[in-house]
Design a protein around this nucleic acid. Structure first.
Lengths: 128, 128
DNA sequence: CCAACTGTACTAAGCATCATAGTACAGATG
DNA sequence: CATCTGTACTATGATGCTTAGTACAGTTGG
């Protein structure tokens, strides 16, 4: 369910949060769905329970997850809404990136084509 | 010449490297140009000399800067070439971003317009 | 009821990175 | 020769990430 890259400079708990958001946006997780318990996910990923807890509490704080003591954690009703708002605010990141690549010599048409193929999911252009 | 954001999560020496790259790409710094000495820039920015040195040695390692013991540091001949290569490799970042924003509900036309205005330098659309 | 699960809280330790402080040495220069 | 230059080194403090271990309260199925 989750893929952790131990070599990444991104903290493990942050990787969990990011992947959780994508699972919700892609529809694999819906409001009300139960999440693995802190301890079971800990055993599954070979990660300390405290680290899982840190990710879960962060997701709870953002309104993406509902923690119910004694019962478990569930995808919150507001999850999709919250995540969409956050990600759409990334337009400033996109602007930054485009400006950098323009400075580096990228042509406008080149960038537009890149966006189109990424949006359409063109496998031949996507890297990695 | 350099603007350091002490509150940023990005390390100071990394901010220096990033800004140095942009100064070269924008043409404000050209091959052979002298850089401020480690100590003078340290006094100017109120940053420890070791931190400046860390940025300079990283820029030297990348082929963006030439360090000459006893004389000073100068913009390397390969600077522009090296930086352009690096930044143009950011196309995978752009692809990631577009995919995320698509999942979040952004329309293709919306993204294309964003790229165009960022490329043209439209002040009314650029944020911050 | 109770054993086994759930989330949660807490302390302690190890580790890495960043930044600072201070000292030192060799090369270049006017 | 004084003063600049880059460079190297040790030591220290602060912060963040992760692990380890313990503990407590709520929930649930047998």
């Amino acid at each position: 369910m989750f893929q952790i890259d131990a070599l990444s400079r991104v903290p493990v708990y942050e990787q969990l949060v990011d992947q959780m958001e994508k699972l919700v946006l892609s529809g694999l997780l819906k409001a009300g769905d139960p999440m693995p318990s802190v301890r079971s996910l800990s055993l599954d990923l070979l990660i300390n329970p405290n680290t899982i807890q840190k990710a879960y509490s962060e997701l709870d704080r953002r309104g993406i997850l509902m923690s119910v003591p004694g019962k478990g954690c569930f995808v919150a009703e507001t999850a999709t809404e919250v995540i969409r708002k956050k990600i759409r605010d990334k337009s400033s990141d996109l602007i930054e990136l485009v400006k950098d690549m323009k400075l580096a010599g990228a042509e406008l048409e080149e960038l537009l084509a890149l966006v189109r193929s990424a949006y359409e999911g063109n496998k031949e252009v996507c890297e990695r």
